[in-house]
Design a protein around this nucleic acid. Structure first.
Lengths: 215, 215
DNA sequence: TGAAAGCTTAACACTACTGTCAAGTAAGTA
DNA sequence: TACTTACTTGACAGTAGTGTTAAGCTTTCA
């Protein structure tokens, strides 16, 4: 099992073709899952999006569940990365501003990932129980402790740290998940980089000022 | 067709049994659509939730689409009601505070409605094109004009009115749509009325102060 | 009380989708 | 080149779900 020969043979198996095809299928699956959630998505439709015969998908991923898991794990990795950003040593105004900027950048660059996550939560998070009750909870407890530290040090107003985080999440993710509504309301086909810069500036201004971090 | 007799006969038709059954089915459908969206929902599963044989649903609603439309129309009526609240004559601090309070109340009292709307938007709003491009756009233009008036009168900071509205939507709806994540993060089974009051107070404080409406 | 309207239900035909298999083709390596 | 492994594809069986029908039951009210 662990001989050099076996290892080599394994590396042949996971060759370029497999890698490429997996990516194409994953991307098609992301679109489908983002729109319809796990239950509403169909392998047939994913196959059409990916432009491959349906059985190919089963060749690369055992079933719908496994394909979904693969996609979801990628997203969680991305999500965790967006979260490990500010520390107790940072100045709160800058740290919170950067966090908002980062979250909005994610909404702009990875709206599909955000939508899949939203769908998963709407469906009652059946595949994310472990994540929500462990990883996320720990990360969140850490962040809120930092914010509480800033409050105790008199650096900002006494806001419930959890609610501050939820405010940032809600306001920033809205631009990915409700993108269509926003575009429609603004009468735009797409939001440009400049639009996002303006949104970022507005949101940072409201929140930092609202927390007593700037005048 | 319009004779008194016909009218009377029509009123017999829509009797108590029909009314009651329609409500039971509608409520079951709301739950199902909130979790799975239009495509992911199944009439079979709605029938089980409502505790009626499946064909009964077809007796009251022609098909899945019509049932969904009925549910969605109720929600839009509710949504519009949540929107017709502040006017140019109001003091901005109070008006915006009240709007945030109202939106959070909706998230608390009608989370299912909020989730159905979220699902619809995530699926690309195929049934809401008309609403988004007409009703909503008009309402929104009206509200943003009022906010712009307050800004021009020097009553508040120069925030893009559209973005202010979107912040409020995102931050408030988050408590309905992402309720599970929030409960999980806070380690609570349910959010109490007191929790919502605290959330409301925090959010109003951040936003009104952040807009330069209070010190 | 009985006729008409309203409601329920089992059964049917049909479609969409899933997962599997076996036979085939293409790619990679000794 | 010959052999092995990787990949593709059409065909199949099975399940879940939809919408319809026809027959039976219940309620209403003249």
């Amino acid at each position: 099992m662990n001989s050099v020969k076996e290892y080599k043979s394994a590396s042949y198996k996971t060759g370029k073709i497999r890698k490429d095809n997996e990516i194409v299928i994953r991307e098609a699956a992301e679109q489908e899952f983002a729109e319809f959630g796990f239950k509403g998505a169909s392998i047939m439709s994913i196959a059409k999006r990916a432009n491959v015969p349906r059985p190919n998908i089963h060749y690369y991923f055992k079933n719908k569940q496994e394909l979904y898991n693969a996609v979801l794990m990628d997203i969680l990795a991305l999500w965790n990365k967006a979260f490990t950003e500010f520390t107790a040593e940072d100045e709160p105004a800058e740290a919170i501003g950067n966090y908002i900027r980062l979250k909005l950048m994610y909404s702009r660059c990875y709206p599909t990932a955000s939508k899949i996550f939203a769908n998963e939560i709407l469906q009652g998070a059946p595949h994310l129980n472990t994540y929500l009750n462990n990883d996320l909870r720990v990360l969140l407890a850490h962040k809120t402790a930092i914010i509480q530290g800033w409050i105790d040090a008199g650096k900002m107003d006494a806001i419930q740290p959890y609610y501050l985080i939820f405010f940032i999440w809600g306001a920033t993710q809205h631009y990915a998940d409700f993108g269509i509504q926003i575009k429609s309301a603004l009468g735009k086909e797409e939001l440009s980089e400049e639009d996002f810069e303006e949104i970022t500036a507005n949101l940072i201004q409201i929140i930092t000022k609202g927390c007593g971090l700037v005048k």
